[in-house]
């Protein structure tokens, strides 16, 4: 585990991340306002995932954190999706 000096994120980086988040918010609002049928759910969720990734990597510093945190965080997400998938094995085929 690297125990060197903590990484300090610049103000400008943080501001740029916020900018991107706002742009993505605008994008998701406009995409869902046009009727894409089932695709609007997909699009909205993909954008939400992108936003969440930005928050995680920069605001929450995951990008600069130890490998342990990155791996275990990924594990949480993977487990969560597997649980949803397995639950749908029931509901999709009922």
């Amino acid at each position: 585990m690297s125990e060197g000096k903590a990484h300090i994120t610049n103000y400008s980086t943080l501001a740029m991340v916020l900018g991107s988040l706002l742009v993505l918010t605008w994008a998701t609002v406009s995409i869902t306002s046009i009727n894409l049928g089932p695709w609007s759910v997909t699009a909205a969720l993909l954008i939400a995932l992108l936003k969440a990734t930005l928050v995680l990597l920069y605001f929450m510093h995951l990008k600069f954190d130890s490998k342990l945190l990155k791996i275990s965080f990924t594990a949480v997400i993977v487990v969560f999706f597997l649980v949803i998938l397995l639950t749908f094995f029931d509901y999709l085929f009922r």
């Binding site: 487990v79 597997l82 649980v83 029931d90 999709l92 009922r94």
Partner: peptide, 20 residues
């Protein structure tokens, strides 16, 4: 973590879920 529904074989789950 992924075996929970074997408690529910008689609860009316789908057959796919049962064998999975």
């Amino acid at each position: 973590y992924f075996v929970w529904a074997h408690h529910m074989f008689t609860s009316g789950m789908s057959t796919t879920a049962q064998f999975t």
